[in-house]
């Protein structure tokens, strides 16, 4: 599998605290790579580098073979890296369509002069998109504040789908969801991969991880200590790496 995203030797400290000690990671197009690890292992810090929130002290990030400088979240997004955050991604008072197109609204000229948002196009594209992914999002929802947690995640994922993101980072997307909704979100993650995106999936629930992921990377104290095919591993093995049991044994 050709590497879509490669992270090499990523180092990051916050003041005296070293958080990442040379992280290597490789993600292929069309795969779901799970990232697991105990709290404080550095998962969030790592993905925030890929999302353009943090800048590394050392190391390199390559997208489709080319080194990239992800200076801002906007830059990362321009390059095709979308992040589905736990609960931070949506503007509550805006509609579903407005959120999907936020920051990239299609514009038409009013009276051939004044640029205005093309609401008709946003509406038709949103309707088509929601129908395509069989989301249970009510079409007429005036604002996303009335949606459930799962529906909100679906909006974020729909956004990534619509913009044909190359890399999608899903940060604990099912953390606060009901069982039914959890299945739906997992389905959407698989769908993103099926449409050719590389998905980095962060989670704590190992049963879910083994269900959704193609490969699993385990982080422990700022390093990736184990990478394995999801079909060839077990919860017990992952836990050994997550807790440092294997390192201690070595």
């Amino acid at each position: 599998m050709a590497a879509l995203l490669e992270v090499e030797g990523l180092v990051k400290s916050f003041g005296p605290v070293d958080v990442l000690h040379g992280v290597d990671l490789s993600l292929g197009a069309g795969e779901v790579l799970a990232l697991v690890g105990d709290n404080g292992a550095g998962k969030s810090t790592l993905i925030k580098h890929i999302a353009g929130v943090y800048r590394p002290d050392a190391g390199e990030i390559r997208l489709e073979g080319r080194p990239v400088r992800l200076e801002t979240p906007g830059k990362a997004r321009e390059l095709g890296i979308e992040t589905v955050y736990q609960d931070l991604a949506l503007a509550d008072e805006l509609s579903v369509g407005a959120n999907i197109f936020l920051g990239r609204e299609p514009v038409r000229r009013f009276l051939g002069l004044i640029p205005v948002i093309d609401k008709v196009r946003i509406k038709s594209e949103t309707d088509a998109l929601l129908a395509r992914i069989e989301s249970r999002i009510p079409r007429k929802a005036r604002s996303v504040s009335r949606l459930s947690g799962g529906q909100r995640q679906a909006v974020s994922i729909a956004r990534a789908l619509y913009w044909q993101a190359k890399v999608v980072i899903m940060d604990e997307p099912t953390a606060a969801l009901a069982v039914m909704e959890r299945e739906h979100v997992i389905g959407l993650a698989r769908r993103l991969a099926a449409e050719g995106a590389g998905v980095i999936y962060i989670g704590h629930n190992l049963i879910e991880i083994l269900e959704v992921a193609d490969r699993v990377s385990v982080m422990y104290r700022g390093r990736i200590v184990h990478v394995t095919n999801a079909r060839e591993t077990t919860q017990q093995e992952l836990i050994k790496y997550m807790t440092g049991f294997v390192e201690a044994a070595n």
């Binding site: 503007a91 509550d92 805006l94 936020l102 009013f110 948002i117």
Partner: peptide, 24 residues
Amino acid sequence: AYTRLGRYMYAIGSNAEAARRVGI
């Protein structure tokens, strides 16, 4: 109601962090 500027005002008021993250 009709321009990006207006839409971004509502977006920032709803969730400034989300607005920042989409590059506004």
